[in-house]
Amino acid sequence: MQEQTVRIGSTHGLHARPAKLFTQAVAASGATVMLSKSGGTPVNAASILGVISQGIDHGDEVTLVVEGGDERAVLEQLIGLLSTDHDD
């Protein structure tokens, strides 16, 4: 199991397009990934509905827990996605 906390880089938070890119990447990784917003209940990170309904805004901290597959590589890729600004 690998775990890391990251601050959201996207200007408009983890909604719409950034959430889509993120959950697509989770699904493609094949690993089981849970996401939680500072202290909240973890949700399935491959669920776009689960992710957007967390109401994650720019600058919020979220924790990812990855299980299965190349955990370190998956975690690094996902952390990279979350810390990037996908909005113009």
Partner: peptide, 16 residues
């Protein structure tokens, strides 16, 4: 395209 792709994912969302 982005919006509709996101909707397609919502239709097949594992939590849903």
């Amino acid at each position: 395209k982005d919006v509709l792709e996101a909707q397609a994912m919502m239709a097949e969302d594992p939590s849903l």
